[in-house]
Amino acid sequence: MSTSQKKILSAAAVGAAAVAAARTVADRTSNAADEDVTRWRVVTVNRPLDDVVAGTPAPLADLGDAVEVRVHAAPGDKGSELWARWRDGADLPDDQDPAQVLRRALRGSKQLLEVGWVLEPGRHTTTEDTVLNAPLRKAISTARGAGLL
């Protein structure tokens, strides 16, 4: 086998593996605990308790009475814990995964409390949609609401 053939085969193997890895991540954008929609989810906010209890940040407040919120002091010097859950029987968003909606709201609230605004992703004006990057695009599209939170 020539060197160039080896390179092509190697690139193909790596490419196939890349697609598989991205698909794995895309498939893991939710976890088993997401099936329990009403379970508590929590972020730790590096702000004193008084700052966090002063008002529910907009991303959580926008979810209205459907979401129950509680706040505790975090142990040590870690700030405050901001907890939220969908209330039993609440009207859940029917066009989005409720777990992802709540994760996005918690992460956004944390950034508002710590920084004052939410970091915008870069505008990907140069990227191209291809068949190979479809799994990655799916993972990116849900990445703010995905994860273990």
Binding site: K110, E114, I140, A146
Partner: peptide
């Protein structure tokens, strides 16, 4: 950094937590 990565779900799925951007 907790806030520097705008795609935290990807690395949480991979590593259990996200590094910065």
């Amino acid at each position: 950094c907790d806030n520097g990565n705008t795609n935290p779900g990807i690395t949480e799925a991979l590593w259990g937590a996200n590094p910065g951007g």
